[in-house]
Amino acid sequence: MKASALAFQLVQSLLVLLLAPLFLGWVDQCRAWLQNRRGAGVWQPYRTLVKLFYKEVVLAHDASPLFRVTPYVLFGCMALTATLVPMVATDLPLAGAVDVIALVGILALARVFLALAAMDVGTAFGSLGARREMLVSFLAEPALLMVFFTAASLSASTSLSTIVTVLTHRGFFLYPSLAFSGVAFLMVLLAENGRIPVDNPETHLELTMIHEAMILEYTGRHLALIEWAQGLKLLAYVGLGLALFFPFGMTESGDWWALPGALLAFILKLIFMGAGLALLETLSAKQRLFRVPEFMGGAFLLAVLAILIHYLLGA
């Protein structure tokens, strides 16, 4: 049992690590289709990664060790996060090490490192990006925590495995509070992954960029690690969203016979989610930066409302 659960953990880890760029490619491809472009194909992120990995790293003269360590920290944090989110199976053996609060903590750790690294070289864009990133996150992070708290109140646990197990095993049950936190979660997902209403992953225009401004100085394998980490982060967020709001079709770890079905369900859900994300991004316009605090404040308050609703309606 124990060994088989560990094997499950290993399978999921490898799966997410390899799948993350593909998901990124799928979202980009969907967006290209929606914008009447042919697109580069779903395998493009892999090609970019390979290209970057084999390139030489060019460091700024004043780059400190912190700058060089950050891509690895970022990658490690995101890989761990993506590994621990229940995607195909609940009750993974290592999932107990990190509950939802700690998960938010790891994401914050990665973010703080990235923001610091952006300020390290001392360029105008770097510190601008760091400031904006922290601006977005100081409201997004509590919003995410409140979303988790609602789910935690529903299942009387902050452990992600237990939450998902409780939510799946209750059969069909409508949770009004989850409707609120679902909206809030979506807003946080968009903001934290540098998606359209908040940030545009495709622009290098100083008026708008947030994430890109922070990683301007990164090259070669460092940049590849950051891009990969970014893909893992998006996958982890989408996986979290699926686990909290559409947990159907998951298996328990150790149950090998149910694995193919769960895998299929997961991939279908991902395809659907990726297309939805692309659609959402195509339909909405990039907000002015000053509107972003309002957007995030809205997410935070919605998440708070979700908890209130939970207390009133008991569901």
Binding site: L174, L301, A315
Partner: peptide, 16 residues
């Protein structure tokens, strides 16, 4: 009943 709760919650969401 569950649907009723959901509708009520949605009304509040719309009010916000």
């Amino acid at each position: 009943q569950q649907f009723l709760n959901l509708f009520a919650a949605l009304l509040l969401l719309i009010a916000f």
